[in-house]
Computed example of a mutant assay.
Amino acid sequence: MPIVTVSRQFGAGGSELAARVAEALGWPLLDNALLDEVAARLGTSREAVAARDERRPSLAARLADALALGATDAEPSVTAALPGRDAESVAPPPAEEQVLAVTQRVIVEAAARGPVVVVGRGAQAALAARADALHVLCCAPRDARIARVAAREGLPLGAAARRVDDVDRERLTLVRKRWGRELLDPSHYDLCLNSARLGLAEAATLVVETARARL
């Protein structure tokens, strides 16, 4: 089944680009809905998954992961049995590796079911071997991305710049660590589109035309 993956630099408008492409093609969009599916499979909240989504965990989170992975099966049941506490209220957040593994499984299953547009989450790496996949990178100059994030999130330019740099670094680290690939290596993509120069409407048209011709 044909697939379009949209990787993106933070603030380049990749999610909006993917939504436009999915609507034009009439295909399902796997973006924020992916968080809901991963959360449901892990039996946790969407917020807990979002905290690990495409982000390098903090030192505290990494230590918590190590403790969770090293804990025995008996420990959670003991804690859950404390008076006034139930299992859900004390359930630890999912470890990074759990979130990544389940996320990859959801992406692969969605691709197997039918045409789909997938946003980020290393989909271009997880589906790299698929001959029926069109891999797209949505990028833009840093200044343009900072301006977009500042306007979208109501942030001063300095705070928006820090956010752009932090999220970019987290995504690069995740893809490098999980798949041994460079997120911004153009050789991993069929189309690399500068949304600041093209605009999202024209960029989406290019993706749709390429998808129809190739897939």
Rank of each mutant, 00 (worst) to 15 (best):
E202R: 15
A131P: 09
P115H: 04
V117P: 01
D65Y: 01
E109K: 11
L137C: 05
R130I: 13
Q9I: 09
N194C: 14
E170T: 01
L198D: 06
R142T: 14
Q124C: 01
L198A: 02
G114F: 04
A80V: 02
D36C: 05
A151M: 04
S45E: 14
D36T: 15
G84I: 04
G122P: 07
L157D: 13
A128R: 07
A196P: 00
F10N: 05
D31V: 05
R105N: 00
L69F: 08
D165Y: 02
S7Y: 09
G122V: 07
G84V: 12
P141A: 08
V119T: 02
A151V: 12
R20Q: 15
A128P: 01
F10E: 03
L25P: 04
L137F: 11
V116R: 02
A51Y: 05
R105G: 09
S58K: 09
A125K: 00
R52P: 05
A74Q: 13
R142D: 12
A160Y: 00
A18E: 12
A12I: 12
M1R: 11
L198Q: 08
L155F: 11
R142Q: 15
Q104D: 14
E97F: 05
L100Y: 02
L172Q: 08
A66E: 13
L67H: 00
A201N: 01
L172V: 10
A64F: 02
A160K: 01
G13R: 11
L206I: 12
A140I: 13
A87V: 12
A60M: 12
A150N: 09
L127E: 06
L35W: 03
P76R: 08
P83G: 02
R121S: 07
T79L: 14
V38I: 03
R41Y: 07
A80C: 02
R56G: 01
V38G: 00
A91V: 00
T5L: 10
R105I: 10
A64N: 06
A133D: 08
R197N: 07
S58D: 11
R52S: 05
E182S: 10
T5M: 07
V116K: 02
V38A: 01
R163M: 13
S58Y: 07
C138G: 13
P2D: 13
D168L: 07
L172R: 13
A112G: 00
V102N: 06
L193K: 06
A150Y: 10
L100H: 03
E47Y: 03
A33Y: 05
A91E: 11
A144P: 08
A161M: 11
L25Q: 03
D168S: 08
V4K: 00
A66K: 08
A150Q: 12
P57G: 01
G43Y: 13
A112N: 04
V99G: 03
L69W: 07
S195W: 06
A126Y: 03
L206T: 06
A40G: 12
A128D: 02
E47Q: 11
V136R: 03
I3R: 14
A101G: 06
E88K: 11
E75P: 01
R197L: 15
L127C: 07
R163D: 08
L25A: 05
D36A: 14
A110W: 10
